[in-house]
Design a binder for these strands. Structure first.
Length: 558
RNA sequence: UGGGGUGUAGCCAAGCGGUAAGGCAAUGGACUCUGACUCCAUCAUCCCUAGGUUCGAAUCCUAGCACCCCAGCCA
């Protein structure tokens, strides 16, 4: 079979999108023998689910077409970047399941080359040192509908520009006093071409180059050339950089170096949350969340702590597709991705979140039995575990209604229900406190109805989970809800849309004893309730804290 | 009112002149010791609008309309 066919077949594994089509054409036409992509985050924040879309796209394309994908830290602005972010970015990409192999790069690796090229452009007379202040420069830039004015420093001689640029680099000038600009066209309808800044002076230590530099390249000057140096074939970025493409092309053409092509796709928007690093940083700084890895955050570290699996996030990125339409993906798509992953992967367990005492009147006081429960109803190979049972149990408060509403299939006075993996019980009465609140439910059980027993097949309308009061363990459970109250938050007042009830911490939950051994990041389905993950940060040995990843679908709740 | 983009179901999204894939959501039903899972069925005479070309248009042409992005020494 021809290699082309092999490539086509492999590529068919991913769902169709315009970038795959472009790459297929480029490979078929021989424009490229193989492809090189890159994921180029700026280390000024933690990666979020939107970055995951880009990571899966770039690494996925490389994987499917037999190419390579580089991880490049776009570290051109030491004023905002930090080693903490570099570490978290690398961890997140690896956690998601991608490997950059030998190709971990930093834009700062190219500072010497970038500087040399800048001198070359000065020598060609297409770059100049400008002394205008930032405010003046803004005024000279013009507006969307009016052309800008040329700076009075625009026509300095090559010699003077070279001398000044070298002195900028040598540290002779304070921050903000001068910049190096490309000499393009102050009247361009594309604002990016109105003599964009190439270098600015920043006396600030850099996490990767230390104090070797006090001038730093701007994104537009650094990015395309970095792509060129690395031999990137398809430089994929988000839509807002579309206007920058002429500038990307301009630098590469002026320099006469290898010229990668830039393609843009629509960034991800997810309903009921915010996605920009700026806003996420604000939530962290203002203490609205506990950190970048707060389980409510759409960051990869947040989703991880919440219990999302790398597989589920990759499946999500595959499902949402890649296009050029500004789109909002409904949170339910993401939730469905974890559910379907965890439904297969997560062992089941019983936990009572809001306990209500359940007394089995005709069960002997001193007796205790162990019943066998499947760890996964559809996967017998996952085995069974035993669950202790005794006269006094806990049931879920929501599973009892003194005056049941129509359609209620759980326990109510006089009604019957099955205790999962145990007996069928009938409610015989309730106990209440002075204010009328039910404090305990009383019932009787029928021994014949034990799972596997002679009357086990008797039909009852409902099955409820339970935990032995004598054997159950206590554990903290944290329930999370959407961060933002409206589906499509926008504008400056987004902070007023924060959901005040996005966390609910439960301290009285009771669980089957096997859960005491749960390890950090271990995931379970608490039957009839949802998927839960042992918090990787706040759990102690033998004392797990459970985060609710997502509820089970509940067709009754509606 | 300058430039660059985008318009296919509630939300995404294939489609590239031959008669509207798929996923999520929703609805109805089957099954069930999780009101879960699974399964089955329904869900665009129509592709922003209006004209035009064509035997034939979501796909080509023309004119509109709507929405998004751009005036950091951020990326």
């Amino acid at each position: 079979m021809a290699p082309e066919n092999h490539i086509t077949e492999t590529a068919a594994a991913g769902s169709a999108n315009f970038l795959r089509n472009i790459i297929q054409d480029d490979l078929a036409s021989g424009k490229h023998a193989s492809i090189v992509t890159r994921f180029p985050p700026e280390p000024n924040g933690y990666l979020h689910i939107g970055h995951a879309k880009s990571i899966c796209l770039n690494f996925g394309l490389a994987r499917d077409f037999g190419g390579e994908c580089h991880l490049r830290l776009d570290d051109t602005n030491p004023a905002r970047e930090d080693q903490e972010y570099i570490d978290s970015i690398k961890g997140s990409v690896r956690w998601l399941g991608f490997d950059w192999g030998e190709h971990l790069h930093h834009a700062s690796d190219y500072f010497p080359q970038l500087y040399q090229w800048a001198e070359e452009l000065v020598g060609k007379g297409v770059a100049y040192v400008d002394d205008l202040t930032a405010e003046e420069m803004r005024a000279y830039r013009g507006t969307l509908t009016e052309a800008g004015k040329e700076s009075p420093y625009r026509n300095r001689s090559v010699e003077e520009n070279l001398e000044l640029f070298r002195r900028m680099r040598a540290g002779d000038f304070p921050d903000g006093s001068r910049v190096l600009r490309a000499k393009i066209d102050m009247a361009s309808p594309n604002m990016n071409l109105r003599d964009p800044v190439m270098y600015r002076i920043v006396h600030e230590p850099h996490p990767h180059t230390g104090d070797a530099w006090c001038i730093y390249p701007m994104y537009d000057y650094a990015h395309g050339q970095s792509d060129s140096i690395e031999g990137i074939t398809h430089s994929i970025c988000t839509l807002e950089f579309e206007d920058h493409r002429p500038l990307y092309d301009w630098f590469l053409d002026q320099l006469c170096v290898y010229h990668p092509r830039q393609y843009e796709f629509a960034r991800l928007n997810l309903t009921y949350t915010v996605m920009s690093k700026r806003k996420l940083l604000q939530l962290v700084r203002d203490g609205d969340v506990t950190g970048w890895d707060d389980p409510r955050m759409p960051t990869l570290d947040g989703l991880r702590r919440r219990g999302y699996t790398p597989d589920s996030i990759r499946a999500f990125c595959e499902q949402i597709g890649v296009g050029r339409n500004g789109s909002w993906i409904e949170m339910s798509v993401l939730e469905e991705c974890v559910r379907s992953d965890l439904n297969v992967a997560a062992p089941r367990a019983m936990a009572v979140l809001r306990p209500l005492r359940l007394i089995v009147e005709n069960y002997p006081e001193e007796l205790a039995e162990e019943f066998s429960a499947a760890n996964h109803p559809q996967r017998p190979e996952l085995g069974v575990r035993s669950i202790p049972f005794c006269r006094e149990l806990y049931m879920e408060r929501d599973d009892f209604m003194e005056v049941p509403v129509k359609g209620f299939k759980r326990l109510a006075p006089g009604s019957e229900v099955r205790l999962r993996y145990a007996f069928i019980i009938r409610c015989t009465g309730v106990e209440k406190d002075e204010s009328g609140v039910v404090t305990a439910v009383r019932c009787s059980y029928d021994r014949e109805t034990l799972t596997g027993g002679p009357a086990a097949d008797r039909k009852v309308k409902g099955v409820i989970h339970w935990v032995s009061a004598r054997h159950g363990i206590q554990a903290d459970v944290r329930l999370y809800d959407r961060l933002i109250t409206v589906s499509n938050p926008s504008g400056d007042d987004w902070k007023s849309l924060l959901n005040p009830d996005s966390t609910e911490f439960l301290t009285g939950a009771v669980m089957e004893p096997s859960l005491a051994a749960a390890r950090p990041e271990e995931r379970f389905q608490f039957e009839r309730q949802g998927y839960f993950c042992v918090d990787g940060k706040d759990s102690l040995p033998g004392k797990p804290v459970f985060n609710r990843t997502v509820t089970l679908r509940d067709s009754w709740a509606k």
